[in-house]
Design a binder for these strands. Structure first.
Lengths: 239, 239
DNA sequence: CCAAAAGTGTTCGTCGTACACCCATGT
DNA sequence: ACATGGGTGTACGACGAACACTTTTGG
């Protein structure tokens, strides 16, 4: 099956009214980032569809792996978007006409889709984004500086950002945004960025260490002034 | 459109691969209950499908209202069940053959469905369940004493029960399980039932009152021994 | 030696816990 | 009067918040 066939007859391969959109979140230089793809002059969330004979969780992992190259990324259900007027027809018409690609009202791609959204936390430096057939570029955008996006995709991104803020309070999930080895100041700064507020260093460190989830490694040699921080890594499960 | 037409050609009216299942939860005599429908010799969760030109939230409210008669029930998203082998074909074949109703492999009802599940909290005494075309009976089942159910419906019910336990810790939602006016001992007992553990009366009362969400009304006249409890009701929003 | 960064300690207040005590009602 | 059930108060401890202090490094 080729891409132009899918645009037209996607229902032959995929569940016809469902789509999956991913908010892939990274962290770089004290900023939360989100991976977007450029189609035409606007940006879009990476996503895909569920094969007719494919379980949902398999589909999500397949799409996520395809987009990031990661084997076991952290991933969590975000929300459903099911409005009846949620269609991409006008945007696609514009795009395909600009590109000189055939387009028709009855193409599958113009269907009304119910979208299942997931968010994923990744280490940017360990991620190799992959472009789809129509994607002209990818870019990690700052959450506070999003470009023009298709339809309601900007609000999906923002709901993921708010959701992350909520989840961090109850779950230990932020390690996924950092390299395998990281320092406490790094983790501390990350939490402050996510929560958008100051967090007491002393208390933070004690709380994190008290969970027993981290393993303290050797000191990191910096070349900047100040004491060298310890490095930490997520403790193995079976220990 | 009649029901036999829908079984066969449902895709003409509904999104073809999506279904909605509802875990409708009530509370009676210190027990959490769940509304189930009898089809054949097994029980099933009330549910329905999304019309082709209908928003998801409208669909859920429509189905919930149809099943309970309630205008504005409390409702919350639970989970998605999207396994590829999730089909009802064998059960339906059995049922329709027993009933002498025509059945064919290619009927819509045999599709693979991705199921969106929601849970709802209702006041049992204020709820009038409605039977669908094939439903032989409805009944409020104790969570600890569920009957034989279709497919994975029993596990859906159990995940709703666990979810409720989690949600109660962070949200004030339990009022929906009680009549409009209730007493503090009632609410206290309800929380103990949901959490399946003892809760200190004194602390509970102080915490609830401190939220400022409740309005204290007149005393309730009991005919049992002991002091008369105050009645409470949920304070109006705009006050 | 000093500034900067990392790590640890101390004090204080708030809130959850457990329990005791007081109040009202039917028998 | 007393058992039963409902409402409130108190003493204790754990934990979060704020801030101070010590340790290590580069310049």
């Amino acid at each position: 099956m080729n891409v132009h066939d899918i645009i037209k007859h996607g229902s032959d391969y995929f569940l016809p009214n469902l789509s999956i959109d991913l908010v892939i979140i990274g962290y770089h230089e004290h900023k939360l980032k989100c991976l977007l793809l450029k189609i035409g002059d606007k940006w879009i969330l990476p996503g895909g569809h569920i094969k007719i004979d494919e379980s949902l969780d398999v589909a999500v992992k397949r799409i996520l792996k395809f987009r990031t190259g990661l084997e076991e990324p952290y991933m969590k259900f975000l929300a459903i978007f099911g409005d009846k007027d949620r269609k991409f027809d006008k945007d696609f018409k514009q795009f395909f006409e600009d590109k000189g690609i055939p387009w028709g009202e009855d193409y599958w791609i113009n269907n009304r889709f119910i979208t299942l959204t997931f968010y994923s936390l990744v280490d940017i430096d360990n991620t190799q984004p992959v472009l789809g057939e129509f994607d002209e570029a990818f870019e990690w955008f700052d959450f506070d500086d999003l470009p023009d996006m298709w339809l309601d995709h900007k609000s999906i991104v923002n709901s993921a950002r708010n959701r992350l803020k909520e989840d961090v309070k109850y779950e230990q999930i932020t390690y996924n945004l950092l390299p395998e080895q990281f320092t406490m100041p790094q983790l501390h700064q990350l939490h402050q960025t996510i929560l958008e507020e100051k967090v007491d260093r002393s208390r933070f460190q004690k709380k994190i260490i008290a969970t027993g989830l981290l393993e303290r490694l050797s000191l990191l040699n910096k070349d900047s002034p100040g004491r060298n921080p310890y490095q930490y890594t997520l403790r193995k499960r079976d220990s």
